[in-house]
Write a protein that binds this DNA or RNA. Structure first.
Length: 468
DNA sequence: TCCAATGATTTTCA
DNA sequence: TGAAAATCATTGGA
């Protein structure tokens, strides 16, 4: 109403077709009385009055009035004047509200959403961010589970963002169209210039862009939370299962002279640990975790050898017994498998693991654990342990071993007890002697780190590492 | 709640 | 680039 009143006031004194227009019926006539002028003034006053009071009337009544006004003979002239005035006012307003510069906050949000892969073309749902985080965590492929989780959540955010953005754009367009239609409709009865409509559209877009900003801000917050959780999760740890720790410890203590597993060995250990590990969904031990474990183990062992002696004894004994069982099983196997050809040698699962029958078993066993030359030579107990396990599997049945075998085991134990490094382990009373560490606190320099499975050999094959 | 154990990360070095 | 060393941070038992 105020706007109308202002327009009406502005109309006061404006010349219309050579006549002065007076604003409203209530306004006093400025000049002298003229019969014809009075009549016209009356008409204009009527129209304006009706315009002013049109909103106070019922819809039907207003529609009827509106129609009447549209058909009024003075309407076009009045309308053009009003448009002229409105145009001037509109221009001044428009001049005052020139195009806003791009909001830096919005630009920041846009850039972040683009960097995180939320907005812009889909390229794996923020794989760049995930890769960056992976690089920070030290292993690109090792964190694939976490990455896929991250990516899945980011994709979820992306989808929600795009759905909401679509809804927002739709709502914005619908509202703009509605307002434009409304203004176009109203422009028949009140002066609304195209520029004014344009300005109104601009206002609507600005209002909607604040909603868009909120949406972008919320999305950014969600991404930040997800990211921080993902990065924090890297620090979260779960203890390895007992079996996994045992496997790693067994390898460590049996390779004490050179506890540096090769990449293949690490992979094999990781695989081995993952089979037995039970830490819930997605809790496989990775190669980098194996590396971490050995790194920690080496440093902690070196720092406090005394503390680890008991553990070393335990694992050394375990390794020796496992080996003994494996050999006993092999002996048993040779006896049962080749009854008609006792001198043809015995063959185990692996084809490479063949022995010349000319050697007596005791000599064989002695050679095995003293590292002396022979067709069957175990380099160190570590390789022995793992190789034997893979040869013999976990299904070794002690009951199958007869008295003869048992005596072989006893012999073996005796032989092992004389082998450097494990003498105390089987003696029980004396402490395990840490070997491999040199005077400087470092491990002896060995040729190549032994592997669980040599790349050139199959499972269960025997290596020729004589570092022990 | 404390604290040792331990997995992970960061920094330094060869 | 891998390992050592230091450190952080969580876990789990007492």
């Amino acid at each position: 109403m105020d706007e109308q009143a202002r327009i009406m006031q502005a109309l006061g004194g404006v010349s219309l077709a050579g006549h002065s227009i007076q604003g409203g019926m209530a306004l006093p006539p400025p000049h002298g009385h003229d019969g014809i002028d009075d009549g016209r003034k009356q008409d204009i006053g009527d129209i304006l009055h009706q315009i002013m009071t049109i909103t106070d009337q019922s819809l039907d009544e207003a529609q009827a009035k509106k129609h009447g006004l549209n058909c009024h003979r003075m309407k076009p002239a009045l309308f053009s004047v009003l448009c002229e005035i409105k145009e001037k006012t509109g221009l001044s307003i428009r001049g005052a509200q020139e195009e806003d510069p791009p909001d830096p906050q919005l630009m920041r949000l846009d850039n972040m959403l683009l960097a995180e892969g939320v907005s812009g073309p889909e390229k794996g749902g923020g794989s760049a961010a995930a890769a960056a985080a992976a690089a920070a965590s030290g292993g690109a492929s090792d964190n694939s589970i976490e990455h896929s989780d991250y990516r899945a959540k980011l994709t979820q955010i992306r989808q929600i963002y795009h759905t909401e953005l679509e809804k927002y754009e739709q709502a914005c367009n619908e509202f703009t169209t509605h307002v434009m239609n409304l203004l176009r409709e109203q422009s028949r009865t009140r002066p609304i210039s195209p520029k004014e409509i344009e300005r109104m559209v601009g206002i609507i877009h600005r209002k909607f862009s604040s909603i868009q900003m909120q949406l972008k801000q919320s999305t950014c917050e969600a991404v930040m939370i997800l990211r921080s959780r993902f990065l924090d999760a890297r620090r979260k740890r779960r203890n390895f299962s007992k079996q996994a720790t045992e496997i790693l410890n067994e390898y460590f203590y049996s390779h004490l002279s050179n506890p540096y597993p090769s990449e293949e060995a690490k992979e094999e250990l990781a695989k081995k640990c993952s089979i037995t590990v039970s830490q819930g969904v997605g809790s496989t031990i990775t190669v980098s975790q194996v590396s971490n474990w050995f790194g920690n183990k080496r440093i902690r062992y070196k720092k406090n050898i005394g503390k680890f002696q008991e553990e070393a004894n335990l694992y050394a004994a375990k390794t020796a017994v496992t080996a003994a069982h494996a050999v006993a099983a092999a002996v048993q196997n040779s006896q049962t498998n080749s009854p008609t050809t006792p001198n043809s040698g015995f063959q185990m699962k692996d084809e490479e693991f063949q022995l010349d029958s000319a050697e007596s078993k005791n000599t064989l066993l002695t050679n095995m654990f003293t590292g002396s030359s022979g067709s069957f030579n175990l380099p160190n107990s570590g390789d022995m342990f793992l190789s034997m396990q893979s040869l013999n599997g976990d299904s070794y049945q002690g009951a199958q071993v007869g008295a003869n075998v048992q005596s072989q085991v006893d012999t073996l134990r005796h032989v092992i007890s004389q082998t450097a490094g494990y003498s105390e382990a089987l003696g029980g009373n004396t402490m395990y002697s840490p070997h491999g560490l040199n005077a400087n606190g470092g491990w002896h320099d060995t040729t190549t780190p032994s592997a669980v499975i040599s790349p050139t050999e199959g499972p269960g094959s025997v290596h020729s590492d004589t570092s022990n």
